Simulated assay, not measured.
Amino acid sequence: MTKYWINGALADQVYINDRGLSYGDGLFETIAVIDGKPHLFDQHLDRLQMGLDRLKFPEGTIDAVKNDIQALNFSGNQTLKLTVTRGIGERGYKLPATCVPTRIISLADSSDFAKQRDQGVSVMLCQQRLGINPVLAGIKHLNRLEQVLARAEWSDLDIAEGIVSDLDGNLVEGTMSNLFWARGGILYTPKIDRSGVQGVMRDRLIQLANQLSVEVFEGSYPESVLESAEEVFICNSLIGIWPVITIDGEPLSVGPITRDLQLLLSKEMSC
């Protein structure tokens, strides 16, 4: 069962002229609640604030979101989603003279991804490319049409995720995850400076890799680098770490860096 709050009150409808609906003018965060506590909560709010600043939302928006969240009662394992839109506006792209953001919160039961974490998943390389836009890179804005089109490329239930590259052919991320691979004891991940979402879990795993004395390189890499990868995994705040065991049908082993990071993350999330 999912509950919804809009601007702090239980509700499940928004105005038809909300700019989030009309133009995708807004942002969202999806947070894992573990044993009644939102995981990496401050980091999610930091990314939300980064997006609010980029999109020129009014000051104080994040404070209103925090007040909404403080009124909630978390229990067990849940999925918390925060959505902030520019609010009601007239027809046209011009920003409203007075902006009153719409704050939408949903709270639902969480899914169990233990099997995927343990056994690994199969992924494919998508044909859909991500546009290059440094202004929007990193933030989790509401326009997800590129991801929608990429996800439409497969219906095979054995495929868990699709990997997408940018218009220059450089790897970026999964449709709903960030991407890492290892070779020679070094961990690599695409730099999120022109496309994609700078995942909160992605950033945390870079920190955990440093604790393991594993060097992490961020950069621009073509899809071909995955052919020589010794281990590959995808991640996000809800799924944690999923080892990749096939890419376009080509088999991969679940490697030690992946398992060591899973162990560290598991300990952190159970505290």
Rank of each mutant, 00 (worst) to 15 (best):
Phe57Ile: 00
Trp242Ser: 11
Gln116Asp: 03
Pro58Ala: 15
Glu59Lys: 03
Val65Asp: 00
Lys56Ile: 05
Arg194Tyr: 06
Ser106Asp: 10
Ala11Phe: 10
Ile257Trp: 10
Asn7His: 08
Ile69Asn: 03
Glu218Tyr: 12
Leu55His: 00
Cys99Leu: 12
Ala137Ile: 04
Gln13Phe: 12
Pro96Arg: 13
Leu52Trp: 00
Asp248Ile: 05
Thr102His: 07
Pro58Gln: 14
Pro134Phe: 06
Phe41Ser: 08
Ser22Cys: 15
Ala229Val: 06
Val254Met: 15
Val135Phe: 15
Asn67Phe: 06
Leu238Phe: 05
Thr30Met: 02
Ile6Thr: 04
Val100Ser: 15
Gly120Trp: 15
Ile247Gly: 13
Leu21Pro: 11
Gly185Ile: 08
Lys81His: 14
Asn67Pro: 10
Thr85Phe: 04
Phe74Asp: 15
Glu218Cys: 14
Gly20Ser: 09
Asn178Leu: 09
Leu157Gly: 04
Trp181Gly: 12
Ile192Gln: 04
Ile234Pro: 07
Thr61Leu: 01
Thr258Glu: 06
Ile241Met: 04
Arg204Ser: 01
Ile34Pro: 01
Trp154Gln: 08
Val100Glu: 14
Gln128Lys: 02
Ser106Ala: 07
Glu146Pro: 12
Ser22Arg: 13
Ile139Ser: 04
Asp12His: 06
Arg151Phe: 09
Glu153Asn: 14
Arg47Pro: 02
Glu231His: 01
Asp42Tyr: 05
Glu29Asn: 01
Leu149Phe: 10
Ser220Lys: 09
Glu230Leu: 03
Gly26Trp: 00
Leu142Glu: 11
Tyr188Trp: 03
Pro243Ala: 02
Arg129His: 08
Pro58Asp: 12
Asp42Pro: 06
Glu153Tyr: 13
Gly51Thr: 05
Phe233Lys: 10
Thr85Trp: 13
Leu82Thr: 00
Arg204Gln: 02
Cys235Thr: 06
Met50Lys: 01
Trp242Leu: 14
Leu157Ala: 01
Glu161Arg: 08
Gly8Asn: 04
Ser155Phe: 07
Leu40Lys: 07
Asn236Ser: 04
Leu136Ile: 03
Ala64Lys: 14
Gly120Glu: 14
Gly199Arg: 00
Leu80Gly: 10
Phe217Gln: 11
Gly92Asn: 07
Pro190Asn: 02
Glu231Met: 05
Ala64Pro: 10
Thr61Pro: 00
Glu146Trp: 13
Tyr4Asp: 13
Arg103Thr: 09
Lys94Pro: 11
Gly162Asp: 07
Leu40His: 09
Asn143His: 08
Asn77Thr: 13
Phe74Leu: 14
Arg47Glu: 10
Leu167Arg: 11
Leu261Thr: 10
Ala11Cys: 10
Gly240Thr: 04
Cys235Trp: 06
Leu261Gly: 15
Leu265Phe: 05
Ile104Met: 03
Gly174Ile: 04
Ala137Trp: 01
Gln147Ala: 02
Val100Arg: 11
Val123Phe: 05
Ser266Phe: 11
Thr85Ser: 10
Gly199Leu: 01
Ile206Thr: 13
Asp156Cys: 13
Ile139Lys: 00
Ser228Cys: 07
Ala9Phe: 05
Thr61Trp: 00
Ala160Phe: 13
Leu10Gln: 08
Thr30Arg: 00
Gln198Val: 08
Gln49Ala: 08
Gln13Ile: 12
Asn77Lys: 09
Leu72Asp: 06
Asp168Glu: 11
Glu29Met: 06
Gly162Cys: 08
Gly169Trp: 13
Leu212Ala: 15
Gly196Pro: 05
